[in-house]
Simulated assay, not measured.
Amino acid sequence: MSIAQTIADEIGRRIIRGDLEPGQQALVENDLVTEFGASRNIVREAVKTLAAKNLIRSQRRNGTFVELPEKWNLLDPQVLTWMLSEDNTRDALLTSLSEMRRIFEPEAAALAAERASPRQVLEILECYDSMEKYANDPKRAIEFDVRFHGAVLEACGNPLLRSFNESISMLLRANFNLSIQVDNAFIRNLEEHRIIAEAIRGGDPDRARAASIELLSKNENDIKKMHAMELER
């Protein structure tokens, strides 16, 4: 990681944590040069990085200010990494993910059943087979679960949805790391994955959609149980 990236990472995390509040004058160039022992050019590069993520905005002659959370680029992988690492932003982010998945995943599965190429069908089936094979190996199981959903998104044939794949995969990985801890959730959810895969192979959009809705409902319940368990600790 370069010095500019290190500075951007540190300041980004401060903003996400709430150490720097929206509207607050956040970045004084001289202060950053002193704090990080970096040149002005490097500090400016870090500031540009944060501005590109919509975490800050620069006002001519007035300085640099923290943006409102509603303006943050939540599809930026680095912003997601920062938010997932903080308890005060992680839970709300994953709740929003559940809502977003309900909006697009069932229809993406249905479209995949209509549009998937033989190669894409094979990839989805192979991901499912690996999920089943590694059901008792959480790390590998989660990885193939993420790949399964990514493969379905690719197979739906919608370029806008496919463009979300990297960001959605990061969020799914965090989601599954939580939900897998609840009552053998991964093994319980294999059946819906199997049905989705078979429906896509068989060109049955209605069955793919219904199984996806059922899977999302179970995942939401598992996340709620996980939050309840955390509160009891």
Rank of each mutant, 00 (worst) to 15 (best):
F65G: 04
A116Q: 03
T49F: 05
E114I: 08
A92D: 14
V146C: 04
I142M: 06
F104M: 09
R115T: 08
P138H: 03
A135I: 14
C127Q: 03
P77A: 10
T95S: 12
L93G: 05
Q59V: 15
P77C: 06
Y128F: 15
R60H: 13
H149M: 07
P69Q: 08
S85W: 08
K48P: 00
D137E: 15
D76L: 05
A52S: 15
M100I: 08
V121R: 15
A108Y: 01
N73H: 10
R44G: 02
A108L: 10
A135C: 10
R115P: 02
L74Y: 14
K133W: 08
K71H: 13
A51Y: 01
D129H: 12
A141M: 06
A110R: 04
E154D: 13
N73Q: 12
N73C: 11
L93C: 09
R57W: 05
E126R: 13
R101W: 06
E105H: 10
R61W: 09
A51R: 11
A108M: 12
E45F: 07
A113S: 08
L97Q: 09
R44T: 08
R115F: 11
V47T: 09
R90Y: 06
D129C: 04
Q78K: 13
K71W: 11
I142F: 04
K133Q: 14
R90Q: 15
Q120D: 09
G157L: 07
L84R: 06
P69S: 11
E107R: 13
E70C: 08
A110E: 02
S98H: 10
I42S: 15
L50N: 00
L153E: 01
D76E: 14
N54Y: 10
L111I: 02
T64N: 15
P106F: 08
R101E: 15
E99G: 15
Q78C: 05
P69V: 09
R147M: 14
A108I: 08
G63H: 03
A113H: 01
R147N: 13
A155K: 00
R60E: 12
R102S: 10
N136E: 11
V146D: 02
Y134T: 03
A110F: 05
K53E: 05
N62C: 09
L74C: 07
A116V: 03
K71N: 14
E126D: 13
I56N: 00
V79M: 05
K133H: 14
G63N: 04
L74R: 14
L75V: 13
E154N: 11
R115E: 06
V79G: 01
E126S: 12
L68F: 10
D76W: 04
G150C: 08
K53G: 00
S117D: 03
A141G: 07
E143G: 07
V47P: 00
A52P: 01
G157S: 11
R147W: 06
Y128N: 00
R90N: 09
L93Y: 07
N54A: 10
N158C: 09
D87K: 12
L50Q: 02
K48Q: 13
F144S: 04
K53C: 02
K71M: 11
V47S: 01
R119F: 09
R140P: 01
N41R: 12
P106N: 07
A110H: 02
L122Y: 07
F144V: 05
R90C: 11
A155R: 02
R44P: 00
S85L: 13
L80N: 05
